[in-house]
Design a protein around this nucleic acid. Structure first.
Lengths: 117, 117
DNA sequence: TGAATACATTCACATATCTGAATGTCTGCA
DNA sequence: TGCAGACATTCAGATATGTGAATGTATTCA
């Protein structure tokens, strides 16, 4: 694997790993939206929304097309939604596991790594 | 969707969005490894490896079990690998698209958003 | 019990990222 | 051409994150 593979990979991950940008992607999940609509949907300020859209655009995560005085954004690659959903599943399963739900086994809540038989 | 959903979600993403942690996950991809083995595989220092393993452990991304004087790490949920691979695909397709490969259409290289017919 | 190995943690500092405020640019319309 | 609406960008301060150095803890073995 190329030496900078992980760098590119984590770079894309970093782009996705922002609460605000996730909110934007959540809003764009099913439809193309203008910036104003994204602002309304996310409750963020216009300037901050633009900043994050700029980052998403630069990384090729979203597409932008001008439509009159509006600019309409959409998610560039449907696999991003798939990845998003996969992370959601992992998150849910991890939360369950941390609650000790699986097999009814409860691990020590502190960070200790215990010795097992 | 719950208000802190995106927070939890991006939190997990942030955990994955580190070049070093990705290198660790890459090493753990197919096998359980001791810390020493991870250090060798990644070329990172022992202390730094431990720091990142600690973060991965805290977020439930990896499992740790003691085996004698060693501690063996493994990836907690195979879906993390799936997500990893999905991101890889998106990354590859985005790079191709940015090179203007798709449909032979080359977009302006600067950040401009042009008006289309 | 003491030394050695394997690993974890803490601290202080450097670096990156996020944010709001202010301002700039583009488009449509009068 | 001038104004208004829609959106982007820049800047500076705040906050978060990553890093090496030093040190601590647990386990094995003599």
């Amino acid at each position: 694997m190329a030496q900078d593979f992980f760098c590119l990979h984590s770079d894309l991950c970093k782009t996705l790993a922002s609460e605000k940008r996730q909110r934007i992607l959540g809003a764009l999940r099913d439809e193309e939206l203008t910036v104003s609509q994204i602002v309304t949907a996310t409750g963020m300020t216009q300037a901050n929304t633009s900043q994050h859209l700029s980052i998403l655009r630069a990384k090729g995560v979203v597409n932008a097309r001008r439509d009159g005085s509006n600019i309409r954004y959409s998610i560039a690659n449907p696999k991003i939604i798939q990845a998003f959903d996969l992370i959601t599943e992992v998150m849910q399963e991890t939360l369950d596991a941390q609650r000790g739900v699986v097999d009814g086994i409860v691990e020590p809540a502190d960070g200790r790594i215990v010795t097992k038989a």
